[in-house]
Nucleic acid binder design. Structure first.
Lengths: 226, 226
DNA sequence: CGGTAAATCGCCCGAATGGGGTATTTTTAT
DNA sequence: ATAAAAATACCCCATTCGGGCGATTTACCG
């Protein structure tokens, strides 16, 4: 990306709130240095667009809401970051709590802006990303600094909530899966029928949006679930 | 600090480079919402000013260089933070390395700006601090995010040579396995027959002393093979 | 060049898995 | 007390996997 000054910046918006999404699209449309590649109301929609796009059509930056129908903006970010390294993601959200900030960064978000950020600051942030910077609302930066000056405090004080809404039983089964045990072995370990173990695993896959053991193990480790 | 809108913001400058300090003073002097309480070229000088000031004369924000004669800007920040909680400190420096950033934050710096930041952005940053935010140059924010998303990672990423004596082809196959792909899918991905993929996987299992996909994925991730 | 190792390919068979579905029991929430 | 949700259990069927076996081709080394 040499000479970003004259380059068109490809942008995408993932925002479930109709009015806000449309308004944001219009506002961004006024900037000729930006090209709006796509807008969508869900993470799944975003992933579909990315999966079906030619590489030269992929957005440079995605403005990502966190609270979305279906998979969350954070989960979407994780999946995008796994497959589309060249697309940066700015979280654009009302959430200011440490958990969301922390998790967003963990899954690979490049920036984090609050939704009350003026549009010209948003545009500036979009450009900033391509220059290698991370645009962060100042109050969010304050929390980042807090996380660094008191490391580990957040992870331990907030009982690091488990993504995917897995139940304790499911987590226990998943741990066994991660160790490479067969359903039969796991059943013996947890004193349940193999059928039950299998049902649990089906439920786990459903919640984690995977369909193989390997994928579940990978995700469980990457997301520090086990 | 109620109603900062009409309040004069008391600012101090700690900067050893004569020309730069004077230039900065002049520039800040043009903003009538700012009052320059003192400027000094050393940490000791700064501490002296603070020790000898009435409480109402203490600066709200201090722009602190890091590289100073005598005690460093970081050490100065530490001491100020111990005794003058109401004075915020923005590091204003050329240093972009992780150590300096990390240490600055550890000793209590509220913000971190690079010296090439335009003066109007500096003023904006000064005001931002009193609003509870943390002004950070975007490239510094990028490093902050890196520190959070990969805490302690730096220590382990070195020279992680591949254990198990896996061949390049085997590593490639293992990467695909780790992504949750079936043998058939992997075969299509690497342009080999499914039988060949299976044989590779058998060889991988043998070398890694595992006998399931899940166990291989786990080991591959734990050992940073993929 | 010849021998050996590695890579590639193929098959058999039993075990295991994944996805769909149903049913019962237990727990939880109202 | 009742309804809904969660946990437990089971079945069917197709696919995939793991381990064993064997063969051919290619690459490497002395």
């Amino acid at each position: 990306m040499t000479g970003t000054t004259g380059q068109i910046l490809k942008v995408a918006i993932v925002e479930d709130h109709d009015i806000f999404r449309k308004r944001l699209s219009e506002l961004l449309g006024f900037y000729e240095e930006l090209e709006l590649v796509f807008t969508t109301e869900s993470g799944e929609g975003c992933l579909n667009y990315l999966n079906n796009s030619e590489e030269e059509n992929l957005p440079d930056v995605i403005l990502m809401d966190i609270e979305l129908p279906g998979i969350s903006g954070i989960e979407t970010t994780f999946q995008i970051n796994e497959r589309y390294k060249d697309s940066d993601i700015i979280m654009f959200t009302v959430f200011e709590n440490d958990e969301r900030i922390f998790e967003s960064i963990q899954v690979g978000a490049t920036g984090y802006l609050l939704k009350d950020t003026p549009i010209d600051e948003v545009v500036k942030a979009l450009k900033e990303v391509k220059r290698g910077g991370s645009p962060i609302s100042p109050s969010i930066a304050r929390k980042l600094i807090g996380m660094i000056s008191k490391p580990g405090k957040e992870e331990t004080s907030e009982e690091s909530m488990v993504p995917f809404d897995l139940s304790p039983a499911e987590i226990r089964i998943l741990e066994q899966v991660t160790e490479g045990k067969s359903n039969k072995e796991i059943a013996e370990e947890v004193y349940l029928s193999p059928w039950t173990v299998k049902t649990h695993i089906k439920n786990i896959y459903k919640k984690m949006h995977v369909n193989s053991r390997a994928a579940a193990v990978r995700l469980a480790l990457k997301r520090d679930i086990v």
